[in-house]
């Protein structure tokens, strides 16, 4: 028998109990989980491991005083997308890299570093991916203060 959506959501709730500091479900098959920086790697490990989700991608956003990384995981059996939200103050700009537990996150974390200036601590290869070699350092195209000149 195929798994039911609600059972999967219950499983996710149990797994992340005590770790998630925010739970938001705006749509039956979309869940947004907020976690603290210190717990991000553990939760990501659980999502890809015990929970059994597939890593889709991540979205980096400048949200004013903070920088946000939102990692999207798909649980294909029931069409559920779980997004893991973790933030860092702009003044610090560091987040733990999830690549050690979620290998396909390697590129997207490098991209978020290029475009938003988030440093991912523990990333196996923190080099530029998107920006050209001669792009000036310290200029981040997706920061709100960067004016579009295209």
């Amino acid at each position: 028998m195929p798994e039911a959506l609600e059972q999967v959501v219950e499983k996710l709730k149990k797994l992340t109990a005590g770790l998630a500091i925010g739970w938001h479900r705006p749509f039956p098959t979309r869940i947004y989980l907020n976690v603290g920086r210190e717990d991000a790697r553990q939760v990501a490990g659980l999502l890809c491991g015990e929970f059994g989700a597939r890593f889709a991608t991540a979205t980096g956003t400048d949200v004013g005083d903070e920088l946000e990384a939102l990692y999207h995981f798909c649980y294909d059996a029931v069409g559920l997308v779980v997004s893991l939200r973790v933030r860092t103050p702009k003044s610090e700009g560091t987040l733990p890299s999830l690549t050690p537990v979620v290998p396909p996150a390697e590129w997207i974390e490098r991209e978020m570093n290029d475009l938003l200036g988030i440093t991912f601590e523990g990333h196996p290869r923190p080099e530029r991916l998107i920006l050209a070699d001669d792009w000036p350092s310290g200029v981040y195209p997706l920061r709100k203060e960067k004016e579009h000149d295209a």
Binding site: P26, Y32, A56, T57, H72, C74, S83
Partner: peptide, 20 residues
């Protein structure tokens, strides 16, 4: 205000869009 996710099976695989 809010956020939404759309994904579609393109010929090469899942195309993923997130909007806020």
């Amino acid at each position: 205000a809010g956020e939404g996710i759309g994904h579609v099976e393109a010929p090469r695989g899942e195309t993923f869009h997130y909007v806020r």
